[in-house]
Simulated scan of single mutants.
Amino acid sequence: MIRRWARYVAGSYPPLPSVPFAWAWAYGVTGLFAAVQPHSPPWRPGLSTLNAAVTLTVMLLMMRAADDVRDLEYDRRHNPERPLASGAVSVRDLLVLCAAGTALVLALNAGNPVALAVIAGQLAYCALVLSVYHWLHWPSGDRLLLSLAVSYPAPLLLHLYLYARYLDTTSLDPGRHGVLAVVIVVLASVHLELAKKITRRRRPGERSYVDVFGLSGTIGIALAAPVLSTVLLVVGARTTPALVPLAVLPLVLPALAGWQFWRKRTLRWSPLAPGLYLLLAFTCWFALGLSY
């Protein structure tokens, strides 16, 4: 089974870029909490942040496995090369993988009751969504907005988990600034979710938000979300004028990708740009958190 897990990880959750992305998420979003929190003591990453990064790495692997189980029939038709669809790994293998990952992340967070409760809630929610889909085949993956609404609480709970870790490290109480940081992250992730599926012509059976909002509407939302995220960051963070360029820098990537898509009339939005934007945003948030 270990070999089958290794084949699955190589095909569906390649360590590069998956692990660096998970670690950037943990360190970047925690830095963002520090950047927007007034009167916060100086924040520096330590063992708690390292623990959170390992937890997110495992959690994102399990979420990938759950998505693959849910999308198995779709992938058999449209992505037959994926490990689960090709038979390189079985559903049972992935369920055992998730069980092992669950035990690991619960053990990692046993010393922090609040963080443990959030992680347990996230795991329970993912299990509920997967069970409902298995038994009722709801929601259909073709209903993109409904599927997004059902699945989004899972990453949202990961943001709250990082907030719980941050509060425990700084001995602060929760407040509206934590909500502001989560909104900033959510808006940034909207760009990734929409932009990676922007295309002028869909492949047979391909799912795209262009079918929901139209091409111009999808592009408009995909570009407005990171701009609004940045505005909230500049206004709400403890950002000195010298640090504003650091907060604005990630917008360069959506702007360049949008220019290329429109002016060069490419068929698809740059496949790398949305992920690189979010990775750069995490990096800049981390730097902002360290600057105080």
Score class of each variant (00 low, 15 high):
residue 1 M to H: 07
residue 4 R to P: 14
residue 4 R to E: 13
residue 4 R to D: 13
residue 8 Y to K: 12
residue 8 Y to W: 15
residue 12 S to N: 08
residue 12 S to V: 15
residue 13 Y to P: 02
residue 13 Y to W: 13
residue 16 L to A: 09
residue 16 L to S: 10
residue 17 P to Q: 05
residue 20 P to M: 04
residue 23 W to L: 15
residue 27 Y to T: 07
residue 28 G to L: 00
residue 29 V to D: 12
residue 29 V to M: 14
residue 31 G to V: 10
residue 33 F to G: 00
residue 33 F to E: 06
residue 36 V to K: 04
residue 38 P to F: 01
residue 39 H to W: 04
residue 43 W to I: 14
residue 44 R to H: 14
residue 44 R to I: 14
residue 52 A to W: 05
residue 53 A to V: 00
residue 54 V to S: 07
residue 54 V to D: 01
residue 55 T to A: 12
residue 58 V to F: 12
residue 59 M to D: 00
residue 64 R to P: 02
residue 65 A to V: 01
residue 68 D to G: 02
residue 71 D to V: 02
residue 74 Y to E: 00
residue 76 R to G: 01
residue 77 R to Y: 02
residue 77 R to D: 04
residue 78 H to L: 00
residue 81 E to S: 12
residue 82 R to Q: 08
residue 86 S to A: 01
residue 92 R to E: 12
residue 93 D to G: 02
residue 94 L to T: 08
residue 96 V to C: 14
residue 97 L to P: 05
residue 97 L to M: 09
residue 97 L to A: 08
residue 98 C to H: 04
residue 99 A to T: 07
residue 103 A to N: 01
residue 104 L to H: 07
residue 105 V to A: 09
residue 106 L to H: 04
residue 112 N to Y: 09
residue 115 A to S: 09
residue 117 A to V: 06
residue 118 V to H: 05
residue 121 G to L: 00
residue 121 G to E: 06
residue 122 Q to V: 10
residue 123 L to E: 03
residue 124 A to P: 11
residue 124 A to C: 05
residue 124 A to R: 13
residue 126 C to A: 15
residue 126 C to V: 11
residue 126 C to P: 09
residue 128 L to V: 11
residue 130 L to G: 13
residue 131 S to A: 14
residue 134 H to P: 03
residue 135 W to C: 07
residue 137 H to S: 09
residue 138 W to N: 01
residue 138 W to C: 01
residue 141 G to L: 03
residue 149 A to N: 03
residue 150 V to K: 12
residue 150 V to M: 15
residue 150 V to G: 11
residue 151 S to P: 05
residue 153 P to H: 11
residue 155 P to A: 02
residue 157 L to N: 04
residue 157 L to M: 15
residue 157 L to D: 03
residue 159 H to P: 00
residue 159 H to L: 06
residue 159 H to N: 05
residue 161 Y to S: 15
residue 163 Y to P: 08
residue 164 A to Q: 05
residue 165 R to E: 10
residue 169 T to R: 03
residue 169 T to M: 09
residue 170 T to E: 01
residue 172 L to M: 15
residue 184 I to V: 09
residue 184 I to L: 07
residue 186 V to C: 09
residue 186 V to N: 02
residue 188 A to W: 09
residue 190 V to S: 08
residue 194 L to P: 05
residue 195 A to M: 10
residue 197 K to H: 08
residue 202 R to K: 11
residue 203 R to A: 09
residue 204 P to T: 06
residue 206 E to L: 01
residue 207 R to A: 13
residue 209 Y to W: 04
residue 211 D to H: 15
residue 212 V to H: 08
residue 213 F to G: 13
residue 217 G to H: 03
residue 218 T to S: 15
residue 221 I to R: 12
residue 223 L to N: 10
residue 224 A to S: 01
residue 226 P to K: 05
residue 229 S to C: 06
residue 230 T to I: 06
residue 234 V to D: 15
residue 235 V to Y: 08
residue 238 R to I: 14
residue 238 R to Q: 12
residue 238 R to W: 05
residue 239 T to Q: 03
residue 239 T to M: 11
residue 240 T to I: 00
residue 244 V to N: 00
residue 246 L to D: 07
residue 248 V to A: 13
residue 248 V to W: 15
residue 251 L to Q: 03
residue 261 F to K: 11
residue 261 F to C: 14
residue 264 K to G: 07
residue 264 K to P: 03
residue 266 T to C: 10
residue 268 R to A: 02
residue 270 S to K: 05
residue 274 P to W: 07
residue 288 L to K: 00
residue 289 G to V: 14
residue 290 L to F: 11
residue 291 S to E: 12
residue 292 Y to A: 14
